[in-house]
Every structure is written in structure tokens, then in C-alpha cells.
Design a protein around this nucleic acid. Sequence first.
DNA 1: CTAGATTCGTGAATCTTTTCACAAGTGTGA
DNA 2: TCACACTTGTGAAAAGATTCACGAATCTAG
Lengths: 212, 212
Amino acid sequence: MSLTKKIPASTIRRLSHYLRSLEGFEEPGGTVSSEELAARGQTTAAQVRKDLSHFGSFGKRGLGYQVDELRTRLRRILGLDRTWRVALVGAGRIGLALFEYPAFRARGYECVAIFDADPKKVGLERGKLVVRDPSDFEDAVRELDIELIILAVPAEAAQEMAGRAVEAGVKGILNFAPIRLNVPPRVPVEDVNLVMELEALSFALSQNERSA
Amino acid sequence: MSLTKKIPASTIRRLSHYLRSLEGFEEPGGTVSSEELAARGQTTAAQVRKDLSHFGSFGKRGLGYQVDELRTRLRRILGLDRTWRVALVGAGRIGLALFEYPAFRARGYECVAIFDADPKKVGLERGKLVVRDPSDFEDAVRELDIELIILAVPAEAAQEMAGRAVEAGVKGILNFAPIRLNVPPRVPVEDVNLVMELEALSFALSQNERSA
DNA sequence: CTAGATTCGTGAATCTTTTCACAAGTGTGA
DNA sequence: TCACACTTGTGAAAAGATTCACGAATCTAG
């Protein structure tokens, strides 16, 4: 148990995965062992137990984990027991796709504003929202209590908008732009870098090719 | 230097990043030191040198790395010195967004077919391609020489399509479905899991909250 | 040609993450 | 009640990744 010590990023990704496994599980009062959870993820029983042990000990020896309880605990650990107020910055294809992604709302992310610098897009309706001009951005962050942004603008504009967001009080950034953002360390940034994923894949593929 | 030993995944992601830095660099014959490259990425000079050393030693002591040459080498290492024939499986928002992503074509990924199980989508034109019914899938893989698929279907359908793809001879999968695919180890899978990224972010955010 | 300023490549040291292994609970059935 | 089959939680060991530190090249200038 360690609430203060640093938790490996890989542990967090696995927790997320365990939660998803538990959700596709319909035995309300049932239990699950680390062994079973490991089989569903792609890991080992020891890893599951170690991951969970960072946050307390909520299993019963000889029996396993209570499905409901573990689910609730994981949701709380991952910060999913509340809603997050989100703005979409950049109303291009990728941003809008995420905006309409069902899991997005389902997991407590509430999109309360959309911004785009392209005058042709400003004013368009997307669901219940209207695309705004970025000059409004700072005001909107305060008025709408925006905590988190999805940054889906071209690489050239990304650093500037990230800076403005942090300045305005945004607490975290999901970054789709293919650059490393420079922000103060208190502001977490998660990068979703499609180019990088594709390159990792083609690397693996050409490794196979070479050894064939 | 080690062409056979296992390369850490984190090294590959950094190589991808170094390449991007080098591309936004216009001094054709110039050189760059590990120090400079590190400053652009978010890493250290030693890390840059160690990463590159896995693939040979292509710097000059006292001088640094030749920009052009390093660029070419990185492209080759990452398998970007050729085109990859790709099929998009699942013509939903996310799949199409990636399909139209400019970096996608620019890096040598050529989309040669689109599939979707929804009869309402089958037959629609997307760019130069027509959305096909998945019953065609195996034939198309052979005829069009498809090496790689972008799997952007709902979670329920993902494992089945992955299995069929592998069976038909597909060599790699970029997986957007939020499940771990079960495929033989020779077939590399890269996961782009938006739910997981969001959860990592809300975890980090609520950590901050707690300590505040 | 020599001295001095750079900068790479790489083994060794350090730090991090995963795996192992087992004591300590828990439930079951005779 | 007792023996037995399970399964957790966790230090300790092993494996993996990053950082350090320094010898060996390379270039420049005098």
C-alpha cells in the first residue's frame, strides 16, 4: 500500500484494462481471482496483485476479489467517480470523432465547449454546442469551469494553445498534436500520437520481414 | 550495435520522435549533436546516443550526426522507406478520420480498401474507394496484397475480424477497439486505446486533486 | 604538428518494473 | 474440530531501462 509513492504508468494502463474486464462481467455478487483477471488482460496473476496492492488490499485470501467492490474501487482510483468538464480545441476530424465517441460521455467526460480558429467553422453547430472562436477561450474556461482540454489542432498551433490553456487554469491535456508540449509539471499531458503508433507498427513489421 | 537483441518499445517511440525533429530542420548538410536532439525531445543526450547505438554507430565524434544521413537511417530503421498496403476495417468516425489524416499517406501508408458491416455504408464512396462488405474481406486481402489493417470496429466485432485478418495473411494490426486482441505472436498489434488514455489522464488529475 | 574544445559510443552503476516464492488468511467438507 | 485446497499480499530476487562517466575520435586554430 502506498498512496504517496510513484505509481508506474504501466500499472495505470493495466488498472484501466482490469476495469474494462470487470464491466463485461455479469455476476453481480461474484468474485474473481487475480488469475482470472490476468487471463483476460495479457498479464500475470502476480502482476495483478502487485498493481492492486499499490492502492490497498481489497481481496480476500482463498477467495479472490469481490467483483462489485473492485469495480467501484478501480473507478474511484482512476478518478471516474465524478464528471470532468472538457473543452475540445480544434474541430477537425479527429477532435470531432472523439467528441462523438460514446465511451467519452459514458465515462464522465462532459464536453462543454468547442473551439476552432477556422472562421468557416466558427458558428457551426455540433450536437448541442456551437463552435467558438479561440479569442473567447480564456473567458470560457473561467465561465464554464473547464478542467481539461482535448487538443486536436495542427502541430504549429498546439504549443500556443497549450500555453494559453495552462495559463487560464486548465488542469490537464489530452494531446493529439504530434509534438511534445512544454507545460509546467503539475499539468498532466497524455499524448495520443498516431504517427508514432504507425511507426512502431511498421518497425515491428519490417523486423519480421528482415528475419524472414 | 545489436540487430538481433530486443529493442525496448520506448526506444522506438523516441526514434520516431527524433525523426520528426529532424524533419522540421532545414539545414541540408548540417549536423546535430545528441545534446540538441535531446533538447527537442524530452530526454537526455545519453539516452539519444544509447537509442541510436542499438542500430549501429552513425555519428562522428567531436562533430555529431549528419542530419540527412540520420534522417535516412531512421526512416529505414522504422520501415518508412517503402509503402505499406493498408485496409481500413470499420468506416466509422475514427477510422475515416485516420483515413483522411494527411500524415498517413505522407508516411507511406496507402489505403487500398475500406470495409464496413453496416449495409447502409456499403457502397458509399470515400475518396477514390468504395466501402465494401466484409464478406469480401479474404479475397480482397489476397487480390490487393493487403499487409496491414486499421481495425476500427466496435469491441464485439474486433476479435473476429482480427482472426480473419491474420488467417488471410495480414501482417500487422493497428487496433482502435478497446480490447486486447488475441493473435499469434508473429503478428504485431499496436493499440490505440482512447479510453485508456483518458483514464490515465483522469487518474493523474485526481492525484493532483488529492494532494491539493 | 600540437593543444584544446567537442562529442560519440559504450561498459558499469543506478534506478525501475516485473517475477518469484511463500507465509498468512479464508472457506469447505468430513 | 481438523485437514485440505485456494488465493491474497508482499518482501526479495531477477530482469529491464536509464543515467553516468570516461576513453577514443574529430575538428579548429595557431
